[in-house]
Simulated scan of single mutants.
Amino acid sequence: MREIAAAVAGPVGRLGGAFMASREAKAYSAETGLTGWTPYFRGRFGVLGEVDADVVASAAGFFPLETVRQAWEAGAGLPAATAADRYAAVAHDFGRRTLADFAESARLADLLKLVADGADVVGAPLFGGWRAMPLPEDDRARVIHLAHVVRELRGGLHIVAVLASGLSPWRRSSAASRRSSPTANRTPSTSAGRARTPRSPKTYADGTTTPNGSPTN
């Protein structure tokens, strides 16, 4: 089981997180007027509801509280539920576009759903929140939605594992950042889609790489 988990970790992470740096995500940012980290936090963490930033930080794990609070509160004009629905639509549209030629979407969606339905939500609040979101009817959109759900399961358990090791997630993330090479990080994009050069790129332990812009995981 450990070997299987290790083998699928990378593919699930990429499949479930690629939509966050897609053209659909940039459109969502532009449409809502949210910039920097805000569209990411309001969208991904909107499933938690209208909560204090401390609650969001407890689920985010690998981000400093000040970053979470600034981004979360900057998007307060967009209701959390609306942001979550819009973020889900980003994932669905991304799946319809990128998996248009993938003939096994139905099978992959079914397999991902088996994993999601059989997992425990304890220790993985974002997983629980995203699993409760309505599934799209078409297979290609369902693949990305469910891959994101399973990715949130991995993310929640990652935080639990880091805590069990005696580290704080933020300390673990900072160590990962120091080990990463700046040249390995992609240049983040602004909400308008214009590239900018980061001054101090940082790779967080959950796979998100960016200094102060849109996530690139």
Rank of each mutant, 00 (worst) to 15 (best):
R2T: 13
R2V: 14
E3D: 15
A5D: 14
A6V: 10
A9F: 04
P11F: 01
G13I: 07
G13Y: 05
R14T: 12
G16Y: 03
G17C: 00
G17M: 04
A21K: 13
S22C: 06
R23F: 09
R23P: 10
A25R: 10
K26W: 05
A27R: 15
A27E: 13
Y28W: 14
S29I: 06
A30G: 01
T32P: 06
G36S: 15
W37V: 07
F41V: 15
R42P: 07
R44L: 12
F45D: 00
F45M: 00
L48P: 09
E50F: 09
V51Q: 09
D52G: 14
D54W: 13
D54E: 15
V56H: 03
A57C: 08
A60E: 06
F62Q: 06
P64R: 13
L65Y: 15
T67G: 01
V68E: 06
R69H: 00
Q70K: 15
G75H: 02
G75F: 02
A76N: 00
A76D: 02
G77M: 05
L78S: 05
A81K: 12
T82S: 11
D85G: 10
Y87W: 15
V90W: 03
A91W: 02
H92M: 07
G95D: 06
R96V: 06
R97I: 00
T98N: 04
L99N: 05
L99F: 07
F102H: 09
F102L: 11
S105V: 02
A106R: 04
R107K: 12
R107S: 14
L108Q: 05
L111H: 10
L111Y: 03
L111S: 10
L114S: 13
V115K: 07
V115H: 12
V121C: 11
V121Y: 03
G123M: 02
A124W: 11
A124H: 00
P125A: 07
L126F: 10
L126S: 09
F127T: 06
G128A: 13
W130T: 05
R131F: 05
A132T: 05
M133W: 07
M133C: 09
M133S: 15
L135W: 00
P136F: 02
P136R: 01
R140V: 09
A141T: 04
H145M: 07
H145W: 05
A147R: 01
H148T: 12
R151P: 00
L157P: 02
H158M: 12
I159R: 09
I159H: 04
V160E: 14
L163R: 15
A164E: 14
A164T: 07
S165R: 12
S165T: 10
R171H: 13
R172S: 13
R178V: 12
R179Q: 09
S181Y: 08
S181F: 12
A184V: 08
N185K: 11
T187M: 12
A192T: 12
G193P: 08
A195G: 12
R196Y: 09
R196Q: 11
R199T: 08
P201A: 08
P201V: 03
T203C: 08
Y204V: 00
T209L: 07
N212Y: 14
S214F: 08
S214R: 13
P215D: 03
P215R: 01
